[in-house]
Design a protein around this nucleic acid. Structure first.
Length: 259
DNA sequence: ATGGTGGGCTTCCCA
């Protein structure tokens, strides 16, 4: 089983990249963020033709998430039942994986813009509500994965220049504490289950030649509940799509789980 | 401290 998460920064623009990447990698489940499409514009036929069932929650201009699965999807939930949010950031579904049902939660965490701003307060409130909901989801679904753009670099290892980013948005202590609370629910950061190359990131600013200089952050994650983490055999960032022309500013992340 | 780039119902907002 190959699970993936990718912030595509406009599915309309990135659909060709996504279709190429699906053909290359053949992931079983993919969580997409920043689709920026209303539901009636979602490219369902193209993705079904590529072999994927889809579930999505989108809106115009901003946000938008989608789940793709080669196995049947059921029990789709859009948004957090504990947090009435006009911003489309969450979609969850149960995947009928060969090894048994897998609860997949696709998330686009708020960016927060700047520590102390209104958007930062929203981010922290959203994180608290996510924790409340996930506790219930985990109780109901022991085999659960939370994947997406967390907009949190959990550790200084996940930051190209920790001194410059210290206390800043995506790296602040309250954000990192919220990430640790998610782990405290019984989730593991799949990437850190393995030895990893230093300076592995998943997002690079379009500006200042960020990618060329590898000035990035690791903010896209796949968290696994214990029964899944126990069977995880690999977790990595696939930088290849970020090297293409007109790329998303994020690279896809992957986790493999033995059947 | 600023600004660089990119996407979007664009002349600003969000990342």
């Amino acid at each position: 089983m190959k699970l993936a998460a990718w912030n595509v920064n406009s599915l309309k623009v990135r659909l060709p990249h996504l279709l190429d990447w699906l053909a290359d990698q053949q992931p079983d489940v993919v969580c997409l963020q920043e689709t920026k499409l209303e539901d009636h514009n979602f490219p369902q036929a193209d993705l079904e033709a590529a072999g994927y069932q889809v579930a999505f929650a989108g809106q115009k201009t901003y946000n938008g998430v989608a789940l793709l699965s080669r196995h049947p999807l059921s029990d789709v939930v859009r948004g957090n039942p504990h947090y009435d949010d006009p911003q489309k950031r969450l979609v969850a579904a149960t995947v009928a994986a060969p090894s048994g049902p897998l609860r997949m939660v696709c998330a686009y965490f708020p960016n927060g813009q700047e520590v102390g701003s209104d958007k930062y307060a929203y981010k922290l409130a959203w994180l608290a509500a996510l924790e409340t909901w996930l506790k219930e989801e985990l109780a109901a679904h022991p085999r659960l994965a939370l994947a997406g753009d967390f907009n949190i670099a959990p550790d200084d290892r996940d930051v190209h220049n920790p001194a410059a980013w210290a206390g800043k948005i995506l790296c602040s202590e309250p954000e990192r504490a919220a990430f640790q609370r998610l782990l405290g629910l019984g989730l593991a950061d799949s990437f850190r289950l393995f030895d990893q190359p230093e300076k592995t990131f998943s997002w690079w600013d379009y500006r200042m030649l960020g990618f060329q200089k590898n000035q990035g952050l690791r903010i896209d994650h796949i968290l696994l509940s214990a029964p899944l983490a126990a069977h995880c055999t690999a977790s990595l960032v696939d930088k290849a799509p970020r090297k293409r022309e007109r790329p998303s500013d994020h690279a896809p992340v992957l986790a493999e789980i033995t059947e």
